[in-house]
């Protein structure tokens, strides 16, 4: 091999280098041209980028899957970036078409979007019934009021059950809840505790840990999304909740959350960008999404509270207004 380095091998090597160089340049250049856009025929095609809350993710993902069954050429990508991460990194800079959120958009996020001429349209599409649960061995409590919940969860002062109610056992509270960064935590802090939340509790990103914790200790208590409760009804005992002392306590169920009798119902939103709705695939997807927000499978398969007909109508009006402009 080494003896003819300067002979004809040199030519073939140059050929090789020229060839691979050309191929590499061309490979990139060549393929960038076959990019997306509305292509052949009248079949809908294109991209829809959905980011945002991991709570809304299961609904959006299911919607994407069903939509793509009808429109196999539309690439709907769904990514749980978190409500804030989605607004900050993707939606407001104009790189996403829809952002899911488990809370209302914040003022600074609106400003950020406005800086980039992105105008989010708020659509309340479903609800999550937060469930407060205790160990199945717990026989002293069946229902609680917001006031009692706030005593337990509002700050670190309560350490035993009897601190909250003298009738309850003098045993240490073992508390499990969602992670501080989650929308569930924010909502609970805001709507139940009145703006504060204790720091001494087992915060976890995985609701399975909460279920396990409740199973393992009779003095444990925790709160989490209804979807998890519906899959683990035999492992934990859910508490009935009353907003204030005089109200009738109501057991968590999607029906109760939907008609407003269960007070721990948290709204979920999607925010399509007004500009993105001008693109047909995005418009069609959002339309499909809204039409299906009242579908039964949202309750049966995802475990969330479906939208009622009024919400669907209101959202559709918003959509038509935005697209009509």
């Amino acid at each position: 091999m080494a003896d003819n380095q300067f002979g004809r091998d040199a030519v073939s090597r140059r050929k090789f280098i020229a060839g691979t160089g050309a191929v590499s340049v061309a490979a990139i250049a060549g393929c960038s041209e076959t990019s997306d856009g509305n292509g052949n025929g009248d079949e809908l095609s294109g991209e829809v980028i959905v980011k945002g809350s991991s709570t809304v993710f299961p609904i959006s993902d299911e919607m994407a899957q069903r939509f793509m069954d009808d429109h196999p050429k539309v690439n709907v990508t769904v990514d749980p970036t978190g409500s804030g991460g989605g607004f900050e990194n993707h939606f407001c800079p104009g790189n996403a078409d829809i952002n899911g959120a488990s809370r209302l958009i914040k003022e600074e996020e609106k400003n950020h979007c406005a800086e980039n001429d992105v105008s989010p349209i708020e659509m309340h599409i479903a609800g999550d019934a937060l469930t407060v649960a205790v160990s199945p061995e717990n026989d002293w409590v069946d229902s609680m009021t917001f006031d009692e919940l706030a005593q337990i969860w509002g700050d670190d002062s309560a350490t035993t059950w009897s601190d909250v109610n003298p009738d309850w056992p003098d045993e240490e509270l073992k508390l499990y809840g969602p992670d501080t960064t989650s929308g569930t935590y924010d909502w609970f802090t805001e709507n139940v505790n009145g703006g504060t939340h204790r720091t001494e509790y087992e915060g976890t990103e995985d609701d399975n840990t909460i279920i396990q914790g409740l199973e393992n200790s009779p003095y444990a208590m925790g709160y989490f999304g209804y979807a998890y409760y519906s899959e683990n009804k035999d492992r934990v005992k859910a508490l009935e909740i009353a907003e204030s002392e005089g109200d009738d306590p109501s057991a968590p169920s999607l029906q109760a959350a939907s008609d407003g009798t269960y007070p721990l119902a948290r709204p979920l939103f999607i925010y399509p960008a007004e500009g993105a709705l001008e693109r047909e695939p995005v418009y069609e997807f959002v339309k499909f999404y809204l039409e299906n927000t009242s579908a039964d499978w949202i309750a049966d398969e995802v475990g969330y509270v479906p939208a009622n007909q009024d919400m669907v109508d209101e959202n559709m009006t918003k959509l038509e207004n935005a697209a009509g402009e």
Binding site: S32, T34, D61, A64, M68, V78
Partner: peptide, 10 residues
């Protein structure tokens, strides 16, 4: 993204 159901075309 976490879920991409169509292979990239470019």
């Amino acid at each position: 993204a976490a879920v991409v159901r169509i292979s990239p075309r470019s």
